[in-house]
Design a protein around this nucleic acid. Sequence first.
DNA 1: CCACCGATTGCT
DNA 2: GCAATCGGTGGT
Length: 190
Amino acid sequence: MLERKFYARPADRLASALLGQILVHETDEGRIGGRIVETEAYLGSLDAAAHSFRGQTPRTKVMFGPAGHAYVYFTYGMHYCFNVVAGPLGTGQAVLVRALEPLEGVGFMELNRKQTEIKQLCSGPAKLVQALGITKAYNGHDLTKPPLFIEARNGVPKEDIVTTTRIGISQAAELPLRFYVKNNPFVSRP
DNA sequence: CCACCGATTGCT
DNA sequence: GCAATCGGTGGT
């Protein structure tokens, strides 16, 4: 399980460091998890696309808290997305996890997603939240503790990381803050 | 109090 | 290409 120190770096560096790590939800029924293959960094007050750009509000409170906690937000009236709070403390930086390669508890993912096509289970930020059974109750949860945590694996070598602009934003759209594993079939889009 | 709109998804 | 769906946010 990754320790606090791992998370305490700025979001752009954390976003690439998270590639290859395993996100796990330990439920009563068993483990559900996958390898992180796509992320985006949000840089707080420096980044007009970040929810935390205009300062702390009730919704963005956890983004300004300690690194390594979960920021789970509701959007489009029906979807939730999962972020990892980055450092330094108080800067409102976070990493959006956008896609996983399904590894454990694929049967539970299929039930949660109401479909069995493997590439459709976790290939999007709201899809993976649904697949793993992550709820708004995990907003603020400390990821260094079960039942929702990240397991350490070898990181992805720099030459296998593709950097692009972020998806679905209009502000600061030109910043190269999206990262994904080269040639991985489980990313939300190439 | 009210109007606007979104770090998306799935169907047409 | 676009509707679905609703809480957060900011202005009145």
